[in-house]
Simulated assay, not measured.
Amino acid sequence: MTALWGRVQQQDFRSRVRGCLLGGAIGDALGAGVEFESLAGIRSTYGERGVTDLVPAYGRRGAVTDDTQMTLFTVEGLIRAQVRKDTGAWHPPTDVHRAHLRWAATQRDWGPDERRADAGWLAREEWLYSRRAPGNACLSGLADDRMGTLQDPKNPDSKGCGAVMRSAPFGLLVGWDPGLVFQLAVECAVHTHGHPTGYLAAGAFAVVVHALAQGSALEPAVQRALALLAERDGHQETTGALQGAVNAVRQGPPSAELVESLGQGWTAEEALAIGVYCALVAEDVAHGLLLAVNHSGDSDSTGSVCGNLLGVQHGETALPPGWVAELEGRGTILTLADDFAMEMTQSAALHGPGLTGTGVDGAGWLDRYPGT
């Protein structure tokens, strides 16, 4: 996208970016308090309908987990990849990997390192320096500086959901070809998850988000992802899971039992299938998100995936305002969403030859997003 886009199109895009990031964070927060609970346990504690509102986790209502943390750093990595084009360097997987290494530092450091001039503003957000049950594959995959590749992936046997749950931002690259979006998500997934299901589910999720961001309905978006999956070796588990999600829509009224027929969400293909199913049957955003978190399993990740999908499909104004208001880090999420939208639509006015990199808020854009 370029600055030649009209104002209406830019506003629609910003609303979808905000909706995607806020929606994912809300789903994450709704599931955070019941992530390790069984469905029976959830119903015993909260009643037959299960969770119907935000519940305390990590000392507060609206707390987010590593799912949202890593998604935000993915967004930041994509912005910095765009900025680095000015230097003649263009390799987004490297920039996303560096961003994920900055996330990894938040999991082991007490707080921001003010001495790092290249850290950018997101790594200086103190609220992000908190462990929220990060996955072992994400921690081990980012424990050193070596970047996993498709030829030499990190954790080659891991197909946990830690890559898929952070991959919605790739789908927000709406000016890209779907195949390139798929490929970039895959190349960034293998930084931590090297099993084909672990990285192909991430690619499929990104493609679904990409289609929704362009105005597609959800089921055709899923079909686009299935077509791209069919071209890849080792796609069978992810393909089967997505087809199962579509088929479950026709098996009766939405229920926790139908959700659980798709799995528990700990693995990549199950988290993707549950998120897609709940978004497909959602009567509105709140209904879909509550369905996505009330089950035995990885409730925050399935809620996050579903929230990304519903948010990008319907835009920020469709999100329940009460949940938005209580969301941890809301200001950071909105700032990052708006910065992403500006970078993707108005980059020529923000940085480049002859420009100082001064952003609309008076801060240097290149201080916020260093091109190094």
Rank of each mutant, 00 (worst) to 15 (best):
residue 15 S to A: 14
residue 101 L to W: 01
residue 105 A to K: 11
residue 150 L to M: 14
residue 193 H to E: 01
residue 269 E to G: 03
residue 12 D to K: 11
residue 276 V to W: 13
residue 100 H to L: 15
residue 255 S to I: 08
residue 150 L to N: 02
residue 326 E to N: 05
residue 277 Y to F: 15
residue 47 G to K: 05
residue 229 L to F: 08
residue 168 A to E: 06
residue 16 R to F: 13
residue 219 E to I: 10
residue 204 A to T: 15
residue 212 L to F: 03
residue 63 A to K: 00
residue 317 T to Q: 15
residue 49 R to A: 15
residue 236 Q to F: 15
residue 251 Q to N: 12
residue 322 G to E: 15
residue 168 A to D: 11
residue 287 H to V: 02
residue 108 R to C: 11
residue 52 T to K: 05
residue 359 G to I: 10
residue 114 E to W: 15
residue 248 A to L: 14
residue 31 G to W: 00
residue 84 R to P: 05
residue 269 E to Y: 11
residue 259 V to Q: 03
residue 331 G to K: 14
residue 103 W to A: 04
residue 251 Q to I: 04
residue 343 E to Q: 14
residue 21 L to M: 10
residue 7 R to N: 10
residue 249 V to Q: 10
residue 52 T to V: 12
residue 264 Q to W: 09
residue 306 C to Q: 08
residue 276 V to T: 15
residue 60 R to P: 02
residue 25 A to P: 06
residue 348 A to Q: 11
residue 138 C to N: 10
residue 303 G to V: 01
residue 260 E to N: 08
residue 201 A to E: 05
residue 243 Q to A: 10
residue 329 G to V: 01
residue 180 L to C: 10
residue 57 A to G: 00
residue 335 T to G: 08
residue 70 M to H: 12
residue 72 L to C: 08
residue 102 R to Q: 12
residue 216 S to W: 07
residue 78 L to P: 12
residue 102 R to G: 01
residue 333 I to D: 10
residue 150 L to D: 04
residue 105 A to H: 12
residue 289 L to D: 03
residue 273 A to P: 11
residue 229 L to H: 04
residue 351 H to M: 12
residue 93 P to Q: 03
residue 60 R to Y: 04
residue 266 W to K: 11
residue 253 P to N: 10
residue 296 S to H: 14
residue 189 A to D: 01
residue 17 V to L: 03
residue 50 G to R: 03
residue 193 H to Q: 01
residue 86 D to C: 13
residue 117 A to T: 15
residue 103 W to P: 09
residue 221 A to P: 13
residue 73 F to D: 06
residue 15 S to H: 03
residue 75 V to A: 09
residue 93 P to L: 07
residue 302 T to E: 05
residue 32 A to Y: 03
residue 296 S to V: 13
residue 225 A to K: 08
residue 171 G to Q: 07
residue 69 Q to F: 01
residue 288 G to Q: 06
residue 145 D to K: 13
residue 276 V to A: 06
residue 151 Q to R: 13
residue 281 V to Q: 04
residue 215 G to Q: 00
residue 314 H to C: 06
residue 277 Y to L: 09
residue 322 G to F: 04
residue 231 E to F: 01
residue 372 T to E: 12
residue 133 A to T: 14
residue 43 R to W: 10
residue 31 G to H: 01
residue 301 S to Q: 07
residue 238 T to Y: 05
residue 87 T to M: 01
residue 262 L to Q: 02
residue 333 I to E: 07
residue 55 V to Y: 04
residue 324 V to F: 06
residue 126 E to S: 14
residue 317 T to L: 14
residue 216 S to K: 09
residue 196 P to H: 06
residue 161 C to G: 00
